[in-house]
Design a binder for these strands. Sequence first.
DNA 1: GATACTCGGACCTTTCTTGTCCGCGAACTA
DNA 2: TAGTTCGCGGACAAGAAAGGTCCGAGTATC
Lengths: 159, 159
Amino acid sequence: MSGGVEWALHCCVVLTASSTPVPAARLAELHDVSGSYLAKQLQSLARAGLIHSVQGKSGGYVLTRAPESITLLDVVRAVDGPGPAFVCTEIRQRGPLATPAADCTGACPVARAMWAAEDAWRQALAAVTIADLARDVDVDSGPEALVSVSTWLTGDRDT
Amino acid sequence: MSGGVEWALHCCVVLTASSTPVPAARLAELHDVSGSYLAKQLQSLARAGLIHSVQGKSGGYVLTRAPESITLLDVVRAVDGPGPAFVCTEIRQRGPLATPAADCTGACPVARAMWAAEDAWRQALAAVTIADLARDVDVDSGPEALVSVSTWLTGDRDT
DNA sequence: GATACTCGGACCTTTCTTGTCCGCGAACTA
DNA sequence: TAGTTCGCGGACAAGAAAGGTCCGAGTATC
């Protein structure tokens, strides 16, 4: 799993606190990460339609939907790609005792089991939304945490 | 996820069919993969205690336990490592609005959600055993498939 | 005891991820 | 209308990790 997923998730949670566009550089400064690289993750989120980019002065990124309708699975799929982590190379069709392709109607048992586990993983991710994470942050660090983030994001740069 | 997991799983299923040691080169020939590289995966399985290596002439690998007591999670952890796929870099403790370390009693909400999903994945993998896979192969390809594999594995090389 | 066969680990190559940089176009401001 | 600020996209370099190969240590067989 790529490390950019963590950055993207934190950015989505932070964007919950702001209704005005937030530049990528500001998000990078808040998290103390490389702005150039974070921009790449944000572009992935924008391509997936999770966030919307506003160009020009006073531009930046805004969430396109309500935080309640953005699941963790959406973010992970946008950053890490939609493909399955386990790839079946059809080993059973190779070697001296290869099973003929005609008998391979469905996926091989190994792939079936691995993909079923991945489905369980995706289902768990789809059950949690960005709004849930924001609420958890409130519980953990108190409601003033996200408020101060909001004021810092929308405030002037010279702080 | 590393591709060697697929090879290791197929090897474990195949080893079900043989009670005598099977050389790594024989397993590689059966699956038509690089023997030198497959040896690395088998060594990982041996280090994890899933298979036992017998040296010397007529040596090879044998399953240490019954196939019913080897789960897919055991194989995946042995090959891909036991660490979690999602690594939390404690982003919340960085940047100008870093939450003080004293307030970070538990994992941050983002990591909690991601790890919960991974637990669901591991639980699904732990629920399936190598014996289950072998049975599924019997259902898919008929019982004669594993029988012919067994005779091919134990037979002489000059076939 | 010699031999042939096996595993085991050290080593190298290729690919991918991570991270950086700069030019272009768009939108807001004056 | 000109200038500034900002996001977008591709090109590019470094580092890690996967993929792959090799030779030495050890053991059962003959």
